[in-house]
């Protein structure tokens, strides 16, 4: 087998895979943030808490109702998305005419409430969620061992990301959405119910976070703090990519995950901060972000 800079290929490939998995979560979460930002112009600070909520709802469905992983994959985004719809209708809607910073502060408060509640009832030690039997085990690829579930996470994320991209960029519904992003008043004048669209868009963005939570449940232990630190990294991802383009969010998410994985191989101490360092560099040379529009 070949060696690269004295690093055995098993190690390199293993970290690349781990990076790709982290990248999957970055991509799905930053995609959700970008979709929400596009129409609502707010940064959804509770995105990490809603991702955690997704993992917890999946765990609860299994623990209390005996509903398995595959049903959870469909039900959880619907449930978590519905909580998002309620939040939009009760609270966020009242802030659209104000400075966008208020949306950030409100959703930060919501994140504190969700995390605090789950810490109260479930502690911080983390709950186990087992890998569904169909996806246990793994494949020997010759140069490395690929656990089936991890492969599935990457495939599922890619499918969801490109599905979202297709709906927004290539369908009629997506065209309305993009039009409303540019000029909501004019789109409303054509008889399209823009407030409803905004509400459902927020729900969809939140549902993406819930979906990522279900994917994460079998890999990371389900605990109330699982979203809090992740979301800050995702914010950095979003600053690097810029929120102007859907494809940009996806590509930046996967790309940075891989870069983070490679950093773990070549310079382990820097892997926690490499994304922040890249953010600093991007701010110096292209402040509006790699895919950002300057407005």
């Amino acid at each position: 087998m070949f060696e690269l800079l004295g690093i055995p290929p098993q190690v390199l490939m293993g970290q690349l895979l781990l990076g790709l998995i982290n990248g999957s979560f970055y991509a799905v979460l930053s995609l959700g943030l970008a979709v929400i930002f596009g129409l609502l112009n707010i940064i959804n600070f509770s995105h990490g808490a809603q991702y955690m909520l997704g993992a917890f709802v999946a765990w609860m469905l299994l623990e209390y109702l005996g509903i398995n992983y595959w049903w959870a994959l469909i039900l959880v985004p619907v449930i978590v998305g519905a909580t998002g719809v309620v939040l939009e209708k009760l609270a966020l809607r009242r802030l659209y005419h104000l400075d966008h910073l208020y949306g950030l502060l409100l959703t930060f408060g919501v994140a504190l409430i969700i995390q605090g509640l789950f810490r109260n009832y479930y502690g911080i030690s983390g709950l186990p969620y087992s890998i569904p039997s169909q996806l246990s085990g793994g494949q020997n690829l010759g140069f490395m061992f690929l656990p089936n579930y991890r492969g599935w996470v990457v495939v599922a994320s890619v499918v969801v990301c490109f599905g979202t991209w297709f709906v927004i960029e290539k369908t009629r519904l997506g065209a309305y959405l993009r039009a409303a992003t540019e000029n909501p008043t004019l789109v409303g004048a054509f008889g399209i119910n823009v407030p409803l669209m905004i509400m459902l868009t927020y729900g969809f963005g939140v549902a993406l976070a819930g979906f990522a939570g279900v994917l994460a449940a079998p890999i990371y232990s389900v605990n109330p703090n699982m979203g809090a630190d992740l979301i800050i990294v995702v914010f950095a991802v979003v600053v690097i990519g810029g929120m102007g383009s859907i494809m940009g969010a996806i590509v930046t998410g996967f790309g940075l995950g891989v870069i983070e994985g490679l950093t773990k191989v070549f310079y382990p101490a820097g892997s926690a901060v490499v994304i922040f360092v890249i953010m600093a560099i991007v701010l110096m040379i292209k402040p509006e972000g790699l895919f950002g529009r300057n407005n």
Binding site: L106, G109, A111, I114, G116
Partner: peptide, 21 residues
């Protein structure tokens, strides 16, 4: 009261932004 402090802080944030800017 442990994590309830976090919940209360979150509630103050939400009410503050909605009603009490």
């Amino acid at each position: 009261m442990g994590a309830w402090v976090t919940v209360i802080q979150g509630v103050i944030f939400v009410l503050g932004v909605l009603l009490f800017r």
